[in-house]
Design a protein around this nucleic acid. Structure first.
Length: 263
DNA sequence: CGATTATGATTAA
DNA sequence: TAATCCTAATCGC
């Protein structure tokens, strides 16, 4: 599930669910036992998402960094939650809800300096308050790398993943292999605006939805999964029916419509 | 029931 | 580029 929208939604939901009551923190798996013990009984002060990075601030000043990676999940359930399994790296238990973290790429306590180092490496986050769009635009348009590779570069735009990249390129009518340098500023600005819109929609629905309601004839919440995307992992283009093609860009499959997205 | 795959990213070669 | 990390659903035999 984890592209930028997932992490921003998670930050919001964790704060809302765990509030300001003392939290029971444990590591059923044992791998972060020490960190868990340090946080156990503390209140959660603030949660923050930056691209695909999640930061949880605790009242004692501790800072928890979580990156879900490809397979990580942070699942809520009502207290007392499921029986602890040894795949649960971290468990946060509040008054009402239990949140179980499994399979994260990172789960660690970090210092303020380490947090700064992480965020300093990230580009503009379309879901944050004041992203530096001008800087992202300049860097995006300066490289000869394929546009599909640049979209995944978290140092330029932070939060886009493999699904949004394919869908954004489709909506822009741009072939994945086009060098970013060949795009215009207007091309970039249109794609940026679209990214902001789609990621916000993703946060709202807790799912990636890139098709237009008028094109699908249903409200997003009632959409069948098959109606939510144009090209990603589809057999046929949702708009024109052409067989979907795959370009491997930046080591990952980029689905596209060879008819709607010409070179 | 083992193999494959996945909305990610770093490190080594 | 390839290998690596981590989990769980799905697929093929």
């Amino acid at each position: 599930m984890p592209e930028g929208h997932t992490i921003h939604r998670l930050a919001r939901d964790l704060k809302r669910s765990l509030g300001r009551a003392p939290i029971q923190v444990s590591s059923p798996q044992g791998r972060v036992r020490k960190s868990a013990a340090l946080l156990d009984g503390q209140r959660l002060v603030r949660t923050e998402a930056w691209g695909k990075e999640l930061f949880v601030h605790w009242e004692g000043g501790e800072l928890l960094h979580v990156h879900l990676g490809l397979i990580g999940k942070f699942r809520p359930s009502p207290v007392p939650g499921p029986a602890p399994r040894d795949t649960i790296r971290l468990r946060l238990q509040g008054d009402d809800d239990v949140w179980d973290l499994t399979g994260p790429m990172r789960c660690e306590l970090i210092t303020a300096a380490e947090r700064r180092a992480i965020t300093a490496r990230l580009g503009a986050d379309p879901l944050r308050r004041a992203p530096d769009v001008a800087s992202a635009r300049t860097r995006f348009l300066a490289t000869k790398r394929a546009v599909a590779a640049v979209l995944l570069d978290q140092a330029i735009i932070a939060g886009i993943g493999n699904v949004y990249r394919a869908e954004l390129l489709f909506r822009a009518g741009i072939h994945p292999d086009v060098p970013a340098v060949e795009l215009s500023e207007a091309d970039f600005d249109a794609m940026w605006d679209d990214t902001v819109r789609l990621l916000r929609l993703g946060v709202r629905h807790g799912a990636i939805i890139t098709t237009e309601p008028d094109e699908v004839g249903r409200t997003p919440g009632r959409m069948r999964p098959d109606d939510r995307l144009y090209v990603y992992k589809r057999q046929h283009c949702r708009r024109c029916g052409t067989d979907i093609a795959i370009a491997e860009v930046a080591g990952r499959n980029c689905y596209f419509c060879p008819s709607c997205q010409r070179r």
